[in-house]
């Protein structure tokens, strides 16, 4: 629970209070942005945007969700917008994953698509759902408030995201065992 008094002081633009709010929340916010973008530089930039936006828009925070949820929402919106603008991360990560896959030992190709690589290859919305739930530990109600969807759709959205992630991982695992991958790029 972030203290009411702290919020008021942040709203009034008090720098000490802003620093205090940042200290209390920056670890999970940065961690989320890092996994969303898979890039420390991008996460750094987006974290700046998140807090600047949070400090200027704090007046609009209505207290219906927790402040933590509201901050997650600002961060997720920043990340999704960024990823839409520049689809670079997805492409970059797909290349990375493909490189991993292409590493070969004794003429036998091994796939090492770990859960982070697979996560980065998911559509950003799916990625956000999974991170909010399993990395940040948000309950369905908070996820709904963060993503801006109906609470009743969270379970099915998560099911779909989980399924897609599993397909990515499974393909790479299967491939690890097979002797002659036909289309490495397709599999990864």
């Amino acid at each position: 629970m972030i203290e009411h008094d702290l919020l008021e002081r942040c709203r009034a633009g008090n720098r000490d209070a802003q620093r205090e709010l940042y200290d209390q929340t920056s670890a999970p916010i940065y961690r989320l942005l890092l996994k969303m973008t898979a890039s420390p530089d991008d996460a750094f930039d987006l974290a700046q945007e998140t807090y600047l936006k949070a400090f200027t828009q704090l007046g609009r925070f209505d207290g219906r969700s927790s402040l933590a949820t509201w901050l997650y929402r600002v961060a997720v919106n920043e990340a999704l917008q960024f990823l839409r603008r520049a689809k670079q991360t997805r492409v970059k990560l797909q290349e990375l994953a493909a490189e991993d896959c292409a590493a070969s030992e004794n003429g036998r190709t091994t796939a090492r698509l770990d859960v982070n690589n697979a996560l980065a290859m998911l559509p950003p919305n799916d990625r956000a759902m999974l991170l909010l739930r399993y990395q940040e530990g948000l309950n369905y109600r908070s996820i709904a408030a963060t993503i801006g969807c109906a609470e009743g759709t969270v379970a099915s959205r998560l099911n779909r995201a989980r399924e897609r992630l599993r397909n990515l991982l499974q393909n790479s695992y299967e491939w690890e065992g097979s002797d002659s991958p036909m289309h490495p790029k397709d599999r990864c």
């Binding site: 920056s26 670890a27 940065y30 750094f44």
Partner: peptide, 29 residues
């Protein structure tokens, strides 16, 4: 597998960068 495995360290200069931009924007007292 998706749960955080290690503590992520927030870059030390992140707050400095934010503060600088707050100053530029003249937002804060």
């Amino acid at each position: 597998d998706l749960a955080p495995q290690v503590d992520t360290l927030v870059p030390e200069n992140l707050w400095t960068a934010i503060e600088q931009r707050l100053d530029e924007a003249g937002e804060a007292t």
